[in-house]
Design a protein around this nucleic acid. Structure first.
Length: 436
DNA sequence: TCTGGGGTCCTAGGACCC
DNA sequence: TCTGGGGTCCTAGGACCC
């Protein structure tokens, strides 16, 4: 094993600490130092925790209705999720990060990868500090930076930067000699490695591979045979072999889902039709945003999986459309046809969803030789473009299908008991500062 | 009463084609 | 009397990620 410093690549990853919590705190400084959690849709479960909440023992996925008494007792603030705010803050974060490298990959709502290989002769720890400080200064978000010769090692470095304060939020693993690196890897559990989930961690531990070091030094051929080629690549990446390049252009989605659990259980077909109409409208909008069309519409409905005292029913169906399209009304016909087919009365439905599949680029989609009037692509495309433009300008949901029944609140709509304003994307929610 | 949502990749097996 | 082999596509299931 030769030193990491000699390897050619330098991959950096910047990751926002407790992303959703930190984004809320930018606009509500009173939440600094306070235990805060952000909840999933319907205020169902905890999806983000502040450090103070973690210290109080709150876990990811804890159900809010169970946690609530404890939260009130301990002063834990529970916020409904505000994805419009998070998405906008995420875009600002990414736009700062891309100033630091010519090649980058926006990996998730709170992570950006940078290719720092060309800058490997400079002091990358210092460079990482500059990144950290600029994000903090410009948009008020705390980040940690991890650097290594591969994606997997940079993620490990990021983990170290987060957990060990001695690194001051930035960890470059290539600054360590082999002994120090091995010592560090021996101290970290194998389950912390990017690509090793709960199942595989358990299986690895059962065969004596307990630390990151154990996995790095495992036989790749054995790992491939016993697990998969995916985990073999993880082993190689831990050794410094560059296997996973940055994905610079975002590839078009191969499937687009839209689903929700309902605010209240739903029994009637017409209510399910309203929900499916809204879900499909959203999915079709995303389909058009990536200039794609699709040929398959999947729709599914489900009762609660947590109730043992009621009959369960969960069914989905895939409906093909006559020719690939991104037209909401055509896709909706397919979705509602499928829904009518799978609906059975007498059940207490708590979830529904649609998924668009068979996705292809609209430019390479075969055109009908004799399109019927209803399927006239140019006419429907013009209408859809207009709808999308209005929703972009005036906010999502400004124009929708009447069938989605948005006039009054509906049982299936999600509950959001404590949602903060959309400070950065709605004029009416603009924060007000009182100056004297 | 109340338990998230949206993705990816890999593999295995079957259908089908030449 | 003979019944291969290689390839693609599709689907379902299982693992992972954030």
């Amino acid at each position: 094993m030769h030193s990491l410093a000699a390897l050619p690549h330098r991959i950096g990853i910047a990751d926002i600490n407790n992303a959703y919590i930190s984004m809320e705190r930018v606009f509500q400084p009173r939440l600094e130092g306070v235990p805060v959690v952000v909840l999933s849709n319907n205020d169902g479960v905890v999806v983000a925790r502040s450090a103070e909440a973690k210290e109080l023992g709150v876990k990811m996925g804890d159900a809010w209705f169970q946690l609530k008494p404890f939260a009130e007792q301990e002063g834990i603030v529970g916020l409904s999720s505000n994805y419009e705010l998070y998405a906008n803050m995420s875009a600002r974060f990414a736009s700062i990060l891309r100033q630091f490298a010519a090649r980058y990959e926006v990996y998730s709502i709170d992570e950006v990868w940078l290719d720092l290989s060309e800058q490997r002769h400079r002091d990358l720890s210092e460079y990482g500090q500059t990144i950290k400080q600029r994000v903090r200064q410009w948009i008020g978000l705390p980040v940690c930076v991890g650097i290594g010769p591969t994606k997997t090692l940079s993620k490990l470095a990021n983990h170290v930067a987060k957990k060990r304060s001695a690194w001051n939020g930035v960890c470059d693993l290539t600054t360590l000699d082999d002994t120090a690196l091995a010592t560090l890897m021996a101290e970290i559990e194998v389950g912390e490695v990017w690509g090793v989930g709960a199942r595989i961690a358990e299986a690895l531990q059962a065969m004596g591979i307990k630390s990151v070091l154990d996995l790095r030094d495992a036989d790749p051929a054995f790992i491939r045979q016993r697990f998969s080629v995916v985990l073999e690549r993880t082993v190689l990446e831990l050794r410094g072999m560059f296997c996973l390049p940055l994905v610079e252009v975002e590839p078009a989605k191969q499937q687009i889902q839209s689903s929700r659990s309902f605010g209240q259980p739903v029994f009637r077909l017409d209510e399910l039709r309203e929900a499916v109409t809204l879900f499909l409208s959203r999915a079709a909008e995303r389909l058009r945003a990536q200039q794609s069309v699709c040929s398959l519409v999947q729709v599914w409905i489900s009762t609660s999986q947590f109730r043992d005292d009621e009959p369960r029913y969960s069914q989905g169906i895939t409906v093909p459309v006559a020719s690939p399209t991104a037209d909401t009304l055509t896709l909706l016909d397919a979705a509602l046809l499928g829904l009518d087919w799978i609906f059975k009365p007498g059940y207490r439905y708590v979830r529904a969803g649609v998924c668009l599949a068979g996705i292809m680029d609209e430019a390479q989609c075969p055109q009908d030789l004799f399109p019927s009037v209803e399927q006239d692509h140019s006419r429907s495309a013009a209408l859809m473009r207009a709808v999308d433009a209005i929703n972009r300008q005036y906010g999502s949901g400004a124009v929708g299908l009447g069938a989605a029944g948005l006039a009054q609140p509906r049982r299936w709509m999600m509950r959001r008991g404590n949602v903060t304003p959309r400070y950065t994307t709605r004029w009416e929610d603009l924060p007000v500062v009182y100056a004297r």
